[in-house]
């Protein structure tokens, strides 16, 4: 099986992108966006995490099996959060 070797330039680019993301997060925190403050912060964080998983954790050039494994991990997290929120979001329904 051939092993993909990522050029150092790509790592530096990703590192730069992560730093920009961090600065963006700080900058966005000072904007008055109401409820969107959280959404913007989360969107930047998820983008940064995706870059880390794809490049620093080498998932982008891994086998399909590795990719499925990674996706399964996030799917399970979604199950945990999704079903958990199904409780919190519907607790007040009866009272209403």
């Amino acid at each position: 099986m051939s092993v993909h070797v990522t050029p150092i330039r790509v790592y530096l680019l990703i590192f730069g992108a992560l730093m920009v993301g961090t600065l963006l997060t700080v900058w966005a925190a000072f904007l008055q966006l109401g409820a969107f403050n959280d959404i913007v912060a989360m969107a930047i964080a998820v983008t940064k995490a995706t870059l880390v998983v794809l490049y620093f954790m080498h998932v982008r050039h891994s086998t399909r099996l590795t990719k499925i494994t990674v996706v399964a991990g996030f799917l399970w997290l979604a199950i945990l959060v999704g079903l958990l929120l199904s409780d919190y979001f519907t607790r007040g329904f009866l009272a209403g």
């Binding site: 399970w76 079903l83 199904s86 409780d87 919190y88 979001f89 519907t90 607790r91 329904f93």
Partner: peptide, 22 residues
């Protein structure tokens, strides 16, 4: 097996609607 955990919590403040799903 990962989708059923709420059945341990029917007698808690868990939402009745979530209880029905679980």
């Amino acid at each position: 097996g990962f989708l059923v955990w709420g059945h341990h919590m029917f007698v808690s403040s868990q939402s009745v609607y979530a209880g029905v799903v679980f």
